[in-house]
């Protein structure tokens, strides 16, 4: 039982701990591996706290245990790792303060319980919504030769990712398990997914209609131009059809991604040669 370690940890300013959590979360994929995925990165992020909690030479076994605890399998959206890191930090402190009554196994089970749902929220928020919005705005401006496009895309990415990571770390550390309980009671996950899926799908719909175009040069005689007929009914009907064709290819799961990409090029060359489709 180390008074010195606890003192050291308690005297560390909150902002310093939050900075460690922040960078620990952003560095979550330094050594991504098939065996335990983000395990070494989690250990690294927790190492600052563990080092402070067990400074004495006779506590080295406790320290090893703690390091091993955070070398277990872990996988999450990096930004969301801040929340679990915050909770783990608070729990490590609790355990160090009261090792007799605190089961350290709980530290890992909380991590494991959170990584699934948090990755679900995190991926749909960061990869599925923020990235899509940032990039689609960026692409549409870049297509006009405007450098503001990529700049905006970068700014949107930074100014969502950074504050969210910081805030999640703070939330996890200061409110910890209480927050987790509230999260499941208030259906927070369901709410975030609800908002993300509406905004995300709305933009994906807009993207299918405006970011990339497919038209048909097919015509019978001079009076019947197929594209004009399509434009009169539903402009962008071909892009819409192509999106859903691809959707069913993905859903069937029979064709590998690389084969689809190569197939697209071959189809592009053939359809272009026979004048069926044009970009």
């Amino acid at each position: 039982m180390s008074k010195k370690g606890l003192e050291l940890q308690n005297n560390t300013p909150l902002n310093k701990k939050l900075k460690e959590i922040f960078w620990g979360a952003w560095c979550m994929q330094t050594n991504w591996n098939y065996e335990r995925q983000m395990n070494t990165a989690y250990m690294y992020a927790m190492s600052h706290t563990i080092d402070r909690l067990y400074p004495e030479p006779d506590e080295v076994d406790k320290k090893k245990e703690a390091y091993h605890r955070h070398l277990e399998f872990f996988n999450i959206t990096p930004q969301c790792a801040a929340l679990t890191l915050g909770i783990s930090t608070a729990m490590e402190e609790e355990y160090a303060a009261d090792p007799e009554n605190f089961d350290p196994g709980v530290i890992n089970s909380v991590k494991v319980a959170l990584m699934g749902p948090l990755s679900g929220i995190g991926d749909s928020l960061f990869q599925g919504t923020i990235r899509i919005i940032a990039m689609s705005i960026g692409i549409s401006l870049a297509q006009q030769g405007n450098i503001l496009g990529p700049i905006l895309a970068a700014l949107i990415s930074i100014f969502t990712s950074a504050p969210i990571t910081w805030y999640l770390g703070k939330l996890g550390y200061t409110r910890g398990q209480e927050f987790v309980r509230q999260m499941s009671e208030s259906n927070l996950m369901e709410k975030v997914m609800f908002v993300c899926s509406i905004a995300g799908l709305f933009v994906i719909g807009g993207m299918s209609a405006s970011l990339s175009n497919l038209t048909t040069p097919l015509a019978f005689g001079e009076s019947f131009i197929l594209q004009n007929v399509i434009d009169g009914i539903l402009p962008k009907a071909i892009p819409l059809g192509m999106t859903w064709l691809m959707y069913y290819i993905i859903k069937s799961g029979k064709i590998k991604p690389m084969a689809v990409i190569v197939g697209c090029f071959i189809a592009g060359i053939i359809l272009n040669y026979f004048g069926i489709l044009a970009a």
Binding site: S208, S212, L214, M246, I261, C264, G268, N272, Y273
Partner: peptide, 15 residues
Amino acid sequence: GVSLGANIIAFYGFA
């Protein structure tokens, strides 16, 4: 043709 293919790949991405 490759350029058309690139446009088609975009729809694979959307999907």
